[in-house]
C-alpha cells in the first residue's frame, strides 16, 4: 500500500498522511460500487422489453407490429378497437379479483392453523401446501383439464370462466399460506394472550388484535396472488375452453402479429400497478411520519 511517499509534500494536508494512489482509490471505489452498477444494468435489462412494448404501442403498423413504420396516437385513443382485447382484459381482472379474495381467505385460515395449533396431520398438510409450488404449471394444467373434461363436465361444470377461477384459486393458495405464515411467525403470541387476559373473546381477539397484526402479510399475499393470477397463461390455456383471458388473447394473436392495442393495455397495466404500489408506500410512509 503506497502511503506518504506517493503524494507530493505540498498536498499532504491529511493529518495521518495517508493518501492512496489514484489507481488504488479508483479500485476501491469500483469495488464498493460494483454491485450498484451491476444492479442498474440488471434493472435496465428487466425493463428493456417493457420499453419495447411501450415504444411499439405508438407504431402505425400494417398487418404485423414488428417493423417500425411511423408514429401514431390512434392505438392509445381507442385500445378497445381490436375485437377481444378489452373483453379478455375484463375477464382477466374479474378472475384475478375473485381468485385473490378467495385464496387469501382460505390461505390465511390455513396459515393461522399451521402456526398457532398443534394437530395431527400437520406435516402432511405442509407437504400438500408445498407440492403445488414444486409442480410445473403444465402438469397442473394437464391434470385439471383431464378432471374437468372426464369428471366434472358430467355434473355440469364446463370449461370456461369458472374453471379458470377454480384453477387460479388452487395455485394461489400455497403462495398465500407461505406469505401469511411468515408474517404470523414474526408475531409474538403473547400479544394475543394479553388480549385474552383482558377478557377479549376469541372473535374479538381475532378481529381487534390478530387480524390487524397479520394484515400487512395478507396484503402482500393478495398482491402476489393477483399478479400470479393476472399473468397466468399455461394453466389458463388448458382449462379456459372458449373463454379468453388477456395473456391468452396476446398468445393467440402472437401467431399472426400482436396488435399495438395489446401493447397499450399491457403498458397501462404496468403503469397502474407501479402507481398503486408507489402510492400505497407513500401513504404508509406519510402515516408513519405523522405518528412518529
Amino acid at each position: 500500500m503506497s502511503t506518504v511517499q506517493s503524494t507530493p509534500p505540498t498536498q499532504s494536508t491529511s493529518s495521518a498522511g495517508y493518501k492512496p494512489s489514484f489507481l488504488k482509490r479508483s479500485q476501491l471505489w469500483l469495488a464498493s460500487h460494483f454491485s450498484i452498477f451491476a444492479a442498474v444494468a440488471v434493472l435496465l435489462y428487466l425493463f428493456l422489453p417493457v420499453a419495447y412494448v411501450f415504444v411499439f404501442s405508438f407504431n402505425d403498423h400494417g398487418k404485423t407490429n414488428i417493423v417500425w413504420r411511423s408514429f401514431t396516437w390512434k392505438h392509445w385513443q381507442d385500445p378497445c378497437r381490436v375485437p377481444g382485447a378489452c373483453d379478455s382484459l375484463v375477464v382477466s381482472l374479474e378472475v384475478a379479483i375473485i381468485a385473490t379474495v378467495v385464496s387469501c381467505i382460505i390461505g390465511t385460515l390455513m396459515a393461522l392453523a399451521l402456526v398457532r395449533y398443534q394437530f395431527r396431520g400437520k406435516d402432511a398438510s405442509n407437504m400438500l401446501i408445498f407440492v403445488p409450488m414444486a409442480t410445473p404449471e403444465i402438469v397442473m394444467g394437464a391434470s385439471l383439464l383431464t378432471i374437468f373434461v372426464q369428471g366434472f363436465a358430467n355434473i355440469g361444470l364446463d370449461l370456461g370462466f369458472w374453471t379458470i377461477v377454480i384453477a387460479h384459486i388452487m395455485f394461489c393458495i400455497s403462495f398465500v399460506v407461505v406469505t401469511v405464515r411468515a408474517r404470523i411467525l414474526s408475531l409474538d403470541p403473547k400479544i394475543e394472550e394479553a388480549a385474552q387476559d383482558l377478557y377479549a373473546g376469541p372473535l374479538g381477539t381475532f378481529w381487534r388484535v390478530t387480524f390487524p397484526l397479520i394484515l400487512p402479510g395478507v396484503l402482500g399475499a393478495a398482491m402476489l396472488a393477483f399478479s400470479l393470477s393476472f399473468d397466468d397463461f399455461i394453466i389458463t390455456n388448458f382449462v379456459s375452453g372458449n373463454e379468453s383471458t388477456f395473456p391468452k388473447f396476446v398468445y393467440v394473436s402472437a401467431k399472426r402479429g400482436i396488435p399495438a392495442e395489446a401493447n397499450v393495455i399491457g403498458f397501462s397495466m404496468f403503469v397502474i400497478a407501479v402507481l398503486l404500489v408507489v402510492g400505497s408506500q407513500g401513504i404508509s410512509a406519510w402515516r408513519k411520519s405523522k405518528t412518529a
Binding site: P49, V53, P247, V250, F270
Partner: peptide
Amino acid sequence: IAPFFTSFILR
C-alpha cells in the same frame, strides 16, 4: 416486480 404486470407473453 413491476415488469410482471406487462403480460409476460408480451415481454
